[in-house]
Write a protein that binds this DNA or RNA. Structure first.
Lengths: 195, 195
DNA sequence: CTCTCTCTTTACAGGCTGTCAATTAGGACT
DNA sequence: AGTCCTAATTGACAGCCTGTAAAGAGAGAG
């Protein structure tokens, strides 16, 4: 065990190296590339991770730990109204997705090749769906949902419109600024859902 | 060259075999699997396609030719108003995506590994963007766009909301019926964009 | 019959993953 | 000092994949 932190942890070095490779678009980087980038032998990677899939999984958790996910979720809970929470969810995407996106893209590219990765991917989707449902329920409880829109349908619409994919389409694909994303996606959601 | 059709065309058989494998979710099928499925040697594949990427490209064109893409686009042009065209675009996704989806998923999984595939993918995105822009322009010309919404922004919003990804989220991910997709996405778009 | 085109079989080079074994360098502990 | 343990290294191997190459079989056209 030794000291708590500060040690030139090899596991950490590997994760950071993989992260940087993902950030520069090398989604399909081989283990030898990652290892070389971390200044370590290929076998050392297998000392710390069971296989390629486990490394990706750890990478996702690593990034989650870096980003202040818990804080963002708390801000979402603390929003005074459902409508405010809706905008807070959009803001959260605008803030967090730039850092999450490279990893997500890499995961998306390889998830179909491994059961554990696909499972982790589905878990994340389910998590975001729970968040969307919570917002939809608040809106429904406040009577803010427009006539003829069931909370379930509203939740699904929120879920898909604040997805990383839609953020990617607009910000990465169409070059929107974070501000523009916040404003127009927020407005579109309010108009689509509210009375 | 020989006869026009009917011949037990090996190239065609390979494409059909690949298509069926994609449909049953084997996005990462190897060439030997595809060849065996087509009842042909692995080398025969290389007689008809330069490499794996070329096969995928031909697969996309193959599917496009099967689906009545031209007819759907014509129906979109013939819509009497911009608002009708908007709904026609949503309907088009609901009709065509079930057949397109398996190939698109396979393409999406491998496109980052090949420049030509990435190019083809971007071309398709650009095509859909042109369609979205045409609708946005019609809406603007008819004065139907809501105040404060630039045609460019409207086009981007239409583009992303009728994307295959959003269709996948709702229909494949959340189990929506085609009817439900048509109704709620259409309504959400109208509310988000129109006066 | 011969020529040509397609497909088959066999083989090879090179890259990747995952596993194993033997070995080395450093720290910690007595 | 010496000993022991852990982490990392080198080297090697099986198995899968792609893409290239060469040699031969079979069928149809002229």
């Amino acid at each position: 065990m030794s000291s708590e932190a500060g040690k030139p942890d090899t596991r950490h070095r590997i994760l950071e190296a993989a992260l940087e490779l993902m950030r520069r678009g090398a989604a399909g980087a081989s283990l030898v590339q990652i290892a070389r980038h971390a200044g370590v032998s290929r076998q050392a990677v297998y000392l710390h991770f069971a296989d390629r899939a486990a490394l990706f999984l750890a990478l996702v958790r690593h990034v989650d730990a870096q980003r202040d996910l818990a804080g963002a979720l708390k801000r979402l809970d603390e929003a005074p109204t459902g409508v405010a929470a809706l905008q807070a969810a959009v803001d959260m995407q605008a803030d967090l997705n730039p850092g999450l996106y490279p990893i997500a893209a890499a995961m998306d590219a390889v998830r179909r090749q491994d059961e554990a990765l696909e499972q982790a991917w589905q878990d994340r989707l389910a998590n975001r769906l729970r968040g969307a449902r919570a917002i939809a329920d608040r809106l429904a409880a406040e009577g803010a949902l427009r006539q003829g829109l069931a909370p379930d349908t509203a939740a699904d619409l929120i879920w898909t419109m604040i997805s990383l994919r839609m953020w990617e389409d607009l910000v990465v694909g169409r070059g929107w600024t974070a501000e523009r994303y916040r404003e127009h996606v927020g407005e579109a959601l309010r108009r689509a859902l509210l009375a």
